[in-house]
Amino acid sequence: MTASEPTILATSGGHRAGARSRVVFDALVHHAVDLSGVHGRRPRIMYVGTAIGDAEHFTARMAEAARVAGFDLTPLHLFPMPNVEDVEGSVLDHDVVWVMGGSVVNLLAVWRAHGLDRVMRRAWQEGVVLSGVSAGSICWFQGGATDSFGPELRPVTDSLGFLPYGNGVHYDSDEGRRPLIHQLVADGAFPAAHCTDDGVGLVYRGTELVEAVAETAGKGAYIVTSDGAEVTEERVEPRLLNPSRH
């Protein structure tokens, strides 16, 4: 079971603290599963933690979150080597790819070294829902604002480019991101930028933005454009998802 057309859910959310576990999947992860159309069996989620160096403690937290949610989760590790023999086949065998946040610059370098950029494009074209948070959002776009190089935000403009826009994450919680995104659009680095407050996700069918969704009330999404003289930011009101099932 795969989505009926190439689908991406790019987010600034998806996790929260659990009552009995350190992390549970919030409504955005559940929505990624819904977008895949899977039914009649346990959803298969591939968790990719490249951006945090495949940190084993967080892989364990994701596995526990998946158990609580009723999902089957497979981690894809690239450190110190791929943990599966057939990386492409393993990715294509899943309903959803969920990419963890961290360093998008490091993620891109390691993915390209292993050819995972090409694997992800094929998975996207074949209907595996691509999703993730922060670095796991920016990677699908042309780029965005990143702290990969240090506390001072810098541009990254060579992301995978499946979506032909810039991407601003944590738009309401990191005050440096909005002005840098505006500057990048003004300078023509991106034709437009699509941005999310914490707890918000953007749904794309093909390369078209079709909906903003949120797991937290009162948060927004934003489209930043420029006419060559002035930068304009338009707020998009997300649809509030049903609360997480756990």
Rank of each mutant, 00 (worst) to 15 (best):
M120D: 04
G127E: 12
T50W: 05
A55L: 14
G218A: 03
Q125W: 06
H170W: 01
G53M: 14
G201P: 01
H15I: 12
A193F: 00
N106D: 07
V97Q: 05
F79H: 11
A27G: 03
T11P: 02
G101C: 06
D158R: 08
F58H: 13
I181Q: 04
R22S: 10
H182G: 10
P164T: 10
S173N: 09
S90P: 00
A217F: 01
R235T: 08
L241H: 02
H170G: 01
V91K: 08
D86G: 11
T232S: 15
A32V: 02
R67T: 09
R42D: 06
P75D: 10
V33S: 03
W124G: 11
Q183D: 14
E208A: 13
T216A: 13
M1C: 08
G166V: 10
V91L: 11
W98F: 10
C195P: 01
H39T: 08
V203K: 15
G168V: 03
N242G: 13
E237I: 14
P151N: 12
A17F: 03
L108F: 00
T74S: 06
D197M: 07
G37F: 01
G201M: 07
E211N: 06
V156Q: 03
A186S: 15
E5N: 14
E56G: 06
T7E: 03
I8A: 05
S137A: 15
T207C: 11
Y165W: 03
A145C: 12
T232F: 12
M120Q: 11
R239D: 04
G206K: 14
V23D: 03
S134E: 09
R112Q: 05
V97L: 13
V38G: 01
R178H: 02
R178D: 05
H246P: 07
M46K: 06
F58S: 10
P243I: 13
R178T: 04
A192D: 05
A27V: 04
V128G: 06
V119T: 12
T216G: 02
V169I: 08
S4V: 14
P238G: 10
L241I: 04
R235L: 13
H114D: 03
S148A: 15
C195K: 07
V99I: 08
A212T: 06
D198C: 10
E211Y: 01
F58L: 15
P6R: 15
F79A: 15
D147A: 15
V128Y: 05
M120H: 10
C195D: 05
G144F: 07
V133D: 08
R177H: 02
D197E: 04
Y47P: 01
L73W: 00
I223M: 07
V97W: 01
R245W: 00
T207V: 13
L73E: 00
T74V: 11
F25C: 12
T11M: 15
V224L: 15
L76T: 00
H194M: 14
V213E: 04
Y47M: 13
L76H: 01
L9T: 05
P164F: 04
G168Q: 03
L78K: 05
V68Q: 12
H39L: 09
A229K: 14
L240S: 06
A69V: 03
A65C: 08
